[in-house]
């Protein structure tokens, strides 16, 4: 699959490297060359420097023939604009957008975006880990232990 990742912060780099290692044709876009160094020497995909909502940058990234665009910057307004550009200007069907501020989760969904709800993912993990520790710490002895 050809996958274009917009935003090469820690999360973007992690996702790009993993998708590339799994055999996908990955292209990463970031405004900052030094951010792209997060991909490391072993990254075999393409990189483009520029704004993810800039039409010429998206052309360089060959977004029109991408199977998916994953938008992962830490600015919600930028993510919104990149997603609209990929959809409206290049007709990409599968566009996923990172949500940074929890306020945007429902609003982005309402505006027709496919969201990656980061705050909610973290919250879910926190809740699960609290539930686990609550079971462990509720005073019931673990099986097989003496009181």
């Amino acid at each position: 699959m050809r996958i274009v990742v917009i935003g090469c912060g820690r999360i973007g780099a992690h996702v790009a490297k993993s998708l590339s290692a799994a055999g996908n044709d990955v292209c990463v876009v970031d405004t900052d060359v030094s951010s792209l160094s997060r991909l490391g020497d072993r990254f075999r995909g393409q990189t483009v420097v520029g704004h993810g909502f800039d039409q010429t940058v998206l052309e360089q990234a060959q977004v029109a023939r991408a199977d998916a665009v994953i938008v992962l910057t830490n600015v919600d307004a930028t993510n919104f604009m990149v997603a609209r550009a990929a959809t409206e200007l290049f007709g990409v069907r599968r566009v996923s957008v990172r949500v940074n501020d929890p306020e945007f989760a429902s609003v982005f969904a309402e505006l027709g975006l496919n969201i990656l709800d980061l705050p909610d993912l973290v919250l879910g993990q926190v809740q699960r880990s609290l539930a686990l520790s609550a079971t462990a710490g509720d005073g019931t002895p673990a099986p097989g232990t003496a009181r």
């Binding site: 909502f53 600015v75 919600d76 307004a77 930028t78 919104f80 604009m81 609209r84």
Partner: peptide
């Protein structure tokens, strides 16, 4: 001064 903000 930010087009992404204005669009959103």
């Amino acid at each position: 001064g930010d087009d992404a903000a204005n669009l959103l």
